[in-house]
Design a protein around this nucleic acid. Sequence first.
DNA 1: GATGGCCTAATTAGGACTTCCGGTGT
DNA 2: CACACCGGAAGTCCTAATTAGGCCAT
Length: 393
Amino acid sequence: MACCSSVLGVKMEPCESGEEETMETLVAADSLLNMDCPDSLSLEQHYSQTFLPSLGDVITTPVTQVTVSAEGVVGPFDQPQWHSLHTGKPASQLHSRKRSRKPRHRRAESPTPDIKVKKDKYNKGGNTLYLWQFLMELLQDRQVCPRYIKWTNPNAGIFKLVNSKAVARLWGKHKNKPDMNYETMGRALRYYYQRGILNKVEGQRLVYQFTSLPEDMIYITEGDGTKEEEEENDEIDDNSGNDEGVSDDSDDSTILSSDQSVEEEDSLPPKKKTSAGSVHTPSAAQRSRPAPRPSAQRDTVLRPTKNSLIQEKHLPIVSAEMLRTLQNLQKVQSLQPGGHSSVFKTAQLLGSLCERQAAAEGTVDSRDRPSKSGQKTSELETPKLVPLTSSDL
DNA sequence: GATGGCCTAATTAGGACTTCCGGTGT
DNA sequence: CACACCGGAAGTCCTAATTAGGCCAT
């Protein structure tokens, strides 16, 4: 795949939206399921690019850890964009050391789901993408959403593993665990119950619920294939819960066959469900929680409407992962740049990056560009460039 | 030679899974 | 019967935090 075709990554290279590009993308999409073929484009390759945004072309400064752990601002908590009721652990767990070491700072737990971008996460090939992040990425990728994973109630953070095996294999590819299956992945998901990252939606198989969501999540709903994500504010349609109860559990075995191409997968009848099929963010009025799950350990707290560091219009040019990184920056907005230079550097770099690109491409209005039947994600299809100035950060 | 600063490799602790298992429910 | 789902237990892997040691300048 062309290096610029990262699904969720920032597409910065000049990309003529011609047919070559389209074909490449389609081929890439077709290769999604051909995971057993080491020579062909694999999903892992795809997502290596997807989740490790190819910002290296432009951003050479490593994205240093956003978590500000010094003097009070410890860990990703109190982050406005994320709402987590994650409870801290007893202080007794904070240290158990031999010798006479100084008590080490408690290592920040998995961002729950507060994003903590680990140092050089994207630059050293680290595979430190958490499972929940992985799922969120999938949910923002039109190549797999809604085919393999989809929102059933985006407003409540409820999603369904339409093809649990495929998702598990994707995860296994990502983690370099060829034997990964849904059983194993499901165990990891179940651990998320305890940590308050996920809830299980009772009575519905393969349906889970994020207890919190990022501010500017890209929501791809069914039938979203041909629609660009744009004019979000005008498109906040009310399809919340429309998919609730959908049980098209298509555990197709094609994903397991190395010989079968994506053609079969693609030949699956497109699900025509109720949702209008658009990328959208739920309106504030929709952000009510469904009936609480009795066994849920904590309530889902859904995100507020505004105060977003990057608004959805920026999304096409900022990968979801980077987006969350930037969202995290908001937390340290009030901090002095001198004390957190890397954070501000990154922010400013991104800002200048966007500005430069916007200047270079002028007023690119990609919303008129026809999309290719949902094979490409919004980032690819809409390199809509909205200058992200440092003031935004 | 003593001291301090910087850098790097090694060590350690702990988080995030992964694997296995036995069991229940649909 | 297959599959989803559950949770305990033990293990692996990875990474951040910390330490130790070497080098250099003063």
